[in-house]
Structure formats: structure tokens, C-alpha cells
């Protein structure tokens, strides 16, 4: 019976992902070819895919660390925004390499500060982190929109955007293949995946964090300071989300504008859920999402709206969510 429900879900998700393409009148093979070429089938695709990868990789690790502590960081989106905004502010003042490093740090600090209230509310006031991070997201969108309209706006532009960063973007690539840049953000993201994996498995603090996530009462009885770990995990998650936001500016866009994160925070939640709790799996799953984003934006040229990626992403999250609960322990 339950199996039947799972098959029904998979069929619905497939229908939601493929059927809309027929509505646009674009032949399916053309759509598929466009997807392939604009993601990993052609060098120009790789340019986009690699650009998409870094915030998803780092953002995925960010959401995952919170998830392991039993926290749904729906707020990654807002933390990315404030991180990106803060990084831009610093990088505009210091257009050199040390400025770029400081900018990344500023992004982390901003993200951590933006996540901290959610962790604190959960740990000490019992406020659900999903609610508080949703609220913080909405505030972040408006706060950063105001920044880019007023103090940070490039006076020479009609649109609300910060001035272009000088220097930072040129510094960031580690290696370039034609127009495809392998930026520093990607090795940093890979390193973070491995570090988190090691820390969770081989450090007492990582063990305690996971105990809090799996059963806070049992963790408390085992002498773990649950409130402290909850607050710190949320702040750490925010710091990494802020870093992911900073990379969008420093390694990709080279400027800040309204809603620059464009849903990547929610993508990151999908990346972390799909990774099933293992930081190393964030590497392939963030790649899947990067390809998905690059491919669907490429399909836009064929007249297929980019909303398709939301349909696919949402469906993917549901399938993963249903599989996870299936293998999980018993409920009340």
C-alpha cells in the first residue's frame, strides 16, 4: 500500500517535470539537447555549470551541518543575501586580493549573525527555527534591497545595482579553461565537505552535534550542552551560507543586486536533503543541482520558461523526503 503511494509520487513528479515541455510546443529531443549542451555537453555549458556549482556546494554543506544538528535551515537564502551584500560592501572598499579575502570573511560574519537569532530562539525560547528563518529571509530580502537602492547603489546605473567590483573577480579563478573558470570557491567547497565529514565522524564535538540532532533529550542526559550546540550549529550554518553568498558576488557576478541569490538557498536545502546527511555526498548532489540549473536556464532559449527547474527541484525533494522517512525509525 505504502509502496503504491511511492510509485504514485514518482509518476506525478515525472509528469510535472516532462509534461510541461509538451505545452510549450518545443519537441522533447530539442529540449533535451538544449539542456545537455547548456549544462555539460559543451564548454559554454560548463562555464555556467561551474558558476552555479560553488554556491550550491558551500550552501549544501551549510544546510547539512544544521540538518545534522536537527535544524532545518530554511534561512540559507537570507543568509546568502546578507553574506553577498556584506562581501560586496567590503570588496568595494578594498579592490585587491586581501580585500577579496576580507570580503569572504565579512560574508561569513554577516551570515552567522543573520542565523544566530534563529538558533538562539530555538535553543532558549523554544521558537521553531523554520518559522524564524522564514521571517529572517523576508527581512533579508528587503534589507539588502534597500542597501542596493540607497547606500550601495551605483549612481551611473539606472537599475538598482552596486558598482562592479574591480580586481576581486580577476583574482578568484584558480584555473581557466577557455571561458570556464575554476574559481577558488570550488576547492574551498570540496575541502569543507571533507572537513565536515571528518569532523562529524572523528571528533567528539561532531558526535555530540549529531546526538543533539538525532535525539536532543538523550543527548542532554548524556551530558551534552544541547542549547549551546544548537546555537552554534545554526551560526556555523549561517556563516557557511554567508560564504556561499559571498562567492556569488566574488566568483561569479562581480556586483550585488536585489535578490541575487535567486533561490539558491532553497536549492542548497535540496542538495543537503538529497545528500542524505553525508557531507561527501554533497559533492555529487550539488553537481546535479548545478547541472539542473544550468540546463533549465539554457532551455529558456528554446522558449521553455525557467520555472521548470522549480517543478523538477520540488519533485526531487519530495522523492528524497519520502525515501528518507521510509528507511527511518519508527514514529510514535
Amino acid at each position: 500500500m505504502k509502496n503504491g503511494h511511492h510509485w504514485a509520487l514518482i509518476i506525478i513528479v515525472l509528469a510535472l517535470s516532462i509534461f510541461p515541455i509538451f505545452l510549450t510546443g518545443t519537441p522533447l529531443p530539442d529540449a533535451a539537447r538544449s539542456f545537455w549542451e547548456s549544462s555539460i555537453g559543451q564548454p559554454r555549458g560548463w562555464v555556467v555549470t561551474l558558476r552555479e556549482l560553488s554556491p550550491l556546494l558551500i550552501g549544501g554543506v551549510a544546510v547539512l551541518i544544521a540538518l545534522r544538528a536537527g535544524l532545518f535551515n530554511i534561512g540559507a537564502e537570507g543568509q546568502m543575501l546578507v553574506g553577498a551584500c556584506a562581501a560586496t560592501a567590503v570588496a568595494l572598499q578594498m579592490p585587491n586580493v586581501s580585500g577579496a579575502i576580507l570580503a569572504a570573511i565579512a560574508g561569513m560574519v554577516a551570515g552567522a549573525l543573520w542565523a544566530y537569532p534563529a538558533g538562539w530562539l530555538k535553543a532558549y525560547r523554544g521558537g521553531h527555527e523554520v518559522i524564524s528563518t522564514i521571517m529572517l529571509n523576508q527581512i533579508a530580502v528587503r534589507l539588502t534591497a534597500w542597501f542596493v537602492k540607497s547606500p550601495m547603489k551605483d549612481p551611473n546605473q539606472i537599475a538598482d545595482t552596486s558598482p562592479r567590483l574591480a580586481g576581486a573577480a580577476e583574482w578568484v579563478p584558480v584555473a581557466s579553461f577557455g571561458r570556464a573558470h575554476l574559481t577558488w570557491a570550488i576547492p574551498i567547497g570540496l575541502l569543507l565537505c571533507w572537513l565536515l565529514w571528518y569532523w562529524l565522524r572523528h571528533r567528539v564535538a561532531g558526535y555530540e552535534l549529531q546526538a543533539v540532532g538525532a535525539n536532543p533529550r538523550a543527548a542532554k542526559v548524556a551530558g551534552v550542552n544541547v542549547s549551546q550546540i544548537t546555537t552554534r550549529a545554526m551560526a556555523a550554518s549561517g556563516a557557511l551560507s554567508g560564504l556561499a553568498g559571498a562567492t556569488i558576488v566574488l566568483a561569479d557576478q562581480g556586483r550585488f543586486y536585489e535578490n541575487i541569490s535567486a533561490g539558491r538557498g532553497f536549492d542548497a536545502l535540496g542538495v543537503a536533503l538529497l545528500a542524505g546527511g553525508n557531507p561527501l555526498f554533497v559533492i555529487p548532489t550539488s553537481m546535479v543541482f548545478a547541472i539542473l540549473n544550468a540546463g533549465t536556464s539554457g532551455m529558456g532559449l528554446e522558449g521553455i520558461p525557467k520555472g521548470l527547474s522549480g517543478l523538477i527541484l520540488g519533485g526531487l525533494i519530495l522523492i528524497v523526503g519520502s525515501l528518507r522517512t521510509k528507511t527511518g525509525g519508527s514514529d510514535e
Binding site: V130, I304, P305, K306, S309, G314, I317, S322
Partner: peptide
């Protein structure tokens, strides 16, 4: 029925709706 976490399910519905309406409005 599928016992998906309420937050995950809610977020997915938001994504599907946001994507679906964008799609429907632009494509149709």
C-alpha cells in the same frame, strides 16, 4: 500517507507552485 517531513513537503509545494506558475504564465 508518504510520511514526508512537514517542512520538506511544504517547501517542495512552494517550489512547485512558484515554478509551475512561472511556467504556466510564460508558456501558455
Amino acid at each position: 500517507s508518504l510520511r514526508i517531513d512537514h517542512v520538506v513537503a511544504g517547501m517542495a509545494i512552494n517550489l512547485i507552485s512558484l515554478g509551475g506558475t512561472n511556467f504556466a504564465a510564460k508558456a501558455l
